[in-house]
Design a protein around this nucleic acid. Sequence first.
DNA 1: ATTCATGTTGTGAT
DNA 2: TATCACAACATGAA
Length: 260
Amino acid sequence: MEGPSLYLAANQLKPFRGKTVLSVSGNTKIEKERILGKEVKSIFSWGKHLIIQFDEFALRTHFLLFGAFEAELNHSTLTGDYKRAYTPRLQLDFENGNIKLFSCSVKFLETRNAKASYDFTIDIMSPKWSPDKAFDSISSKPDALIADVLLDQEIFAGVGNIIKNEVLWRVRIHPETKVKEIPPSQLKELIAETKKFSLLFYKWRKVFQLRKHLDIYQKSICPRCGAKVKREKTGKRNRISHFCPVCQMGDENLDQPNLS
DNA sequence: ATTCATGTTGTGAT
DNA sequence: TATCACAACATGAA
């Protein structure tokens, strides 16, 4: 699950702010009983994390590859694509509804203000996100492959494999291009496009229409030039890159008009 | 039936 | 010490 989905979750769960947890269940091994009777102070996301802040501690959730959330508000579905039949990792019940968190990692943060410990300037969905900071962080890793850099949660918190592939396709950069091989102007374009696409991802995900808007991820033909899409494990992270071997051939000169 | 993938963390070897 | 390969976790779609 990528950053925009978490940002969406945090937004959709806002009706539970100020509500008290009436019952707790789930197959998590953490001491979930301590949540009983506590009031939800705030809910927010950072990168791929969803954080529920209580008075003296916070609950941090990470959905990894297969995680999901569902919620009901006043007996109708608030969010969730369908009803899962299996036991949630953690379920919180309120007087106005419930939150179910599936197949995720959950952890307590011993703080009254978890939000203060996160750097939102690197969170792709945050209004505080800084393209200049991203530029500096990326530039400090000249030999890294751009496919790895986009997945680096200390640079682009919230960016996952879908966003990585779609953005690289949009700016026509080969996933195995080294940072130092990318001209500054194109790197800035990449950074701006990452933010732009993440907002689109959010918009589409909200109405369950993400898939139909993807151009390169799990596609067989490049919609721009018709070439057969390549899939290769790339970089140190060994994640699959989906790219067009024609549009993204890594020859920067072809992107620049020849003015001589 | 089998494989793969919107991801991260920890362990043990090199 | 740093880096790496691999395992573990967990679900649903192709």
